[in-house]
């Protein structure tokens, strides 16, 4: 199986070049990634993504624990059609939401994605995640400084002859 990204295998090479140009050339513009990332709480949470267990990842990301809440609605399939692409989404009726994160408990690294929800953005997100095997998926909503969670099991079976 090829690992190139389809019909334009050179694209990534070109993009890498463009990236360094962008960092040098656009550093003084307000939207540049550099200055925005300088804020401590706005940095890519590298440590949290390195944690193996869900509990450690939550601790590294938030420094506190979450309590289950029926105001967090987590939607994921019962049986994933393919563990490589599992549609997962979350919505919530909680107020003052500042972030939403997804953890896949049985993955090698539990934290899958973490989203910042600025003022004015609806607290809800849909994305597609990889799951190594049958696992609990945990969504955490950070609202008014507290953490609320919802958990759902997704059955993952590996491929064969089908489709």
């Amino acid at each position: 199986m090829t690992t190139t990204t389809g019909p334009h295998p050179t694209r990534r090479l070109i993009l890498q070049g463009a990236a360094s140009v962008a960092l040098i050339g656009l550093g003084n513009l307000p939207f540049a990634a550099g200055p925005a990332r300088a804020a401590a709480n706005d940095k890519y949470p590298e440590e949290a993504f390195k944690q193996k267990s869900e509990a450690d990842a939550i601790k590294a990301l938030y420094g506190k624990t979450a309590e289950p809440s029926d105001k967090v609605k987590l939607d994921a399939p019962e049986i994933a059609e393919n563990g490589g692409v599992v549609p997962v989404s979350v919505t919530t009726t909680l107020d003052k939401v500042t972030s939403i994160s997804f953890f896949v408990a049985e993955n090698p690294f539990a934290l899958a994605a973490s989203y910042k929800i600025p003022d004015g953005t609806i607290p809800g997100v849909a994305n597609r995640l990889k799951m190594a095997k049958t696992t609990n998926v945990v969504a955490i909503v950070e609202a008014d400084g507290k953490l609320f969670s919802a958990t759902k099991e997704v059955k993952v079976t590996v491929g064969g002859c089908g489709g």
């Binding site: 059609e81 079976t157 590996v158 491929g159 064969g160 002859c161 089908g162 489709g163």
Partner: peptide, 9 residues
């Protein structure tokens, strides 16, 4: 029906 994990077309 499922063959291993997948549903046959």
């Amino acid at each position: 029906e499922r063959i291993r994990a997948e549903i046959l077309a």
